[in-house]
């Protein structure tokens, strides 16, 4: 785990499947429980991702938003981007080419702007739940 000031950069595992997700969430849980967590997932190592991985990322974002924080993605491979777009979750995240850019973007956003974004994200989650219920 890399930490740069108040923004936490998490290196994602190479295989983001249900087994890896369980281990990863053990490290993540304390970080999600702090006030206004600011997290960057560095996906540069990710070579495989399944729905468990996508759901875990969404879960982390949801938890971060609940506490007026945010989660951003960095160094997504083209494959990861295609999968996130296919699953309609790409638009939910801010994504950056590098972790450094993602970290800098947190510093550029005024703190009071975060909670305004949360309303928008809540609508997206609401839509996603509606689709799941309908199917």
């Amino acid at each position: 785990m890399l930490t740069t000031g108040p923004v936490v950069v998490m290196q994602m595992p190479e295989q983001l499947n249900s087994t890896a997700v369980r281990a990863f969430m053990q490290d993540m849980q304390p970080l999600l429980e702090i006030h206004r967590p600011r997290i960057v997932f560095d996906c540069s190592q990710v070579r495989y991702m399944d729905s468990a991985g996508v759901e875990m990322i969404l879960h982390c974002l949801e938890e971060a938003m609940k506490r007026d924080g945010d989660l951003k993605l960095a160094a997504l491979s083209p494959e990861s981007e295609v999968v996130l777009e296919l699953m309609r979750v790409a638009r939910v995240f801010e994504a950056f080419a590098t972790s450094d850019e993602a970290v800098r973007s947190f510093n550029a956003v005024p703190a009071e702007g975060v909670s305004q974004e949360a309303t928008w994200y809540a609508n997206v989650f609401g839509e996603m739940r509606a689709v799941k219920q309908a199917t």
Binding site: S18, Y48, D50, S51, A52, E55
Partner: peptide, 23 residues
């Protein structure tokens, strides 16, 4: 099964669908 979890992956045929969602 319309209610089965959506499980997918990329990276090649050596990867099989996950059996369960995130904890």
């Amino acid at each position: 099964n319309r209610h089965s979890p959506v499980i997918f992956g990329f990276g090649g045929s050596q990867f099989r669908p996950a059996e369960e969602g995130p904890s």
